[in-house]
Design a protein around this nucleic acid. Structure first.
Length: 256
DNA sequence: ATGACGGCCTGCGGCCGA
């Protein structure tokens, strides 16, 4: 089983790229963030393709979608406890596995209230993970977490020391989530390589490899036991008119 | 020291992203 996260930075700009990527890699699920469009503007080329599209759009900003080979057994839009009118969270159930796709607030805009929104999302997501652990449901929560968990997760000089992506309060919120017993899928498989997933468009960040690792997958124990591989598709980021994020894919062995 | 890129909008400059 393969599940991919990709912040596409406008799905309308990336319709062809996503279609070609799906055909080439054929994941079981593709989680998209930053659609930057409303449901009815979601590209027809994707709606009419081989994948089932579960879309939670929003005008201009945010927006998440999950494309699945199988039709989901259940879908859920939004995150209880995150009381903002922003399309940032979506779940589907495939087989016995819950896939949660998230676009966590950046936290650098909007002053203290903007930063609090980021912490509020973490609180709500932690609650959601806790509920699922209690219920014994297998899950993977993946997407753009907008956080570099440690100083190893960004290139020196790529971020201001006070950036919301590395503030101590942000990192503490991330750790509270992990302390439930979840696994950071990329880092557990690649402890000695940074595994950046984002490179700014500006100042030659990509050729200079001044990147960030901010797109993550957190796994429940059942999924962690079956984790096989995690890869960043840097070649996709290197294409013309690419998103500033690369697709990140997580592979799992079948149960038993 | 500065600028730089690329999305979006009842757009033509400003905001947001990370």
């Amino acid at each position: 089983m393969k599940i991919t996260s990709w912040n596409v930075n406008s799905v309308r700009q990336r319709g062809t790229a996503v279609t070609e990527w799906l055909a080439a890699h054929q994941p079981d699920a593709l989680c998209l963030q930053e659609l930057k469009c409303q449901d009815e503007q979601f590209p027809a080329i994707l709606k009419e393709g081989d994948y089932h599209c579960t879309v939670m759009g929003q005008k201009a900003y945010n927006g998440v979608a999950i494309l699945t080979r199988q039709k989901p057994e259940a879908t859920s839009l939004g995150l209880d406890g995150f009381d903002y009118e922003e399309a940032r969270y979506l779940e589907v159930v495939i087989g016995d596995i819950c896939i949660g796709n998230l676009y966590l607030p950046n936290g650098n805009s909007g002053g203290p209230a903007g930063f609090q929104k980021k912490l509020d999302f973490f609180t709500a997501l932690t609650q959601r993970a806790h509920q699922k652990l209690i219920a014994g449901q297998a899950f993977i929560f993946l997407g753009d977490y907008n956080i570099c968990p440690t100083d190893f997760d960004f290139a020196p000089g790529a971020l201001d020391p006070h950036d919301a992506l590395i503030r101590p309060e942000s990192r503490a919120a991330w750790r509270r989530l992990l302390h439930l017993g979840l696994t950071d899928a990329m880092r557990v498989l690649h402890p000695h390589h940074p595994c950046y997933t984002y490179w700014d468009y500006q100042a030659g960040a990509l050729p200079r490899n001044r990147g960030l690792r901010i797109d993550h997958a957190l796994l429940s124990p059942f999924m962690a036991d079956r984790l096989q591989a995690a890869t960043v598709d840097r070649a996709e980021r290197e294409k013309d008119r690419a998103s500033d994020h690369a697709p990140v894919t997580f592979s799992f062995l079948p149960a038993r």
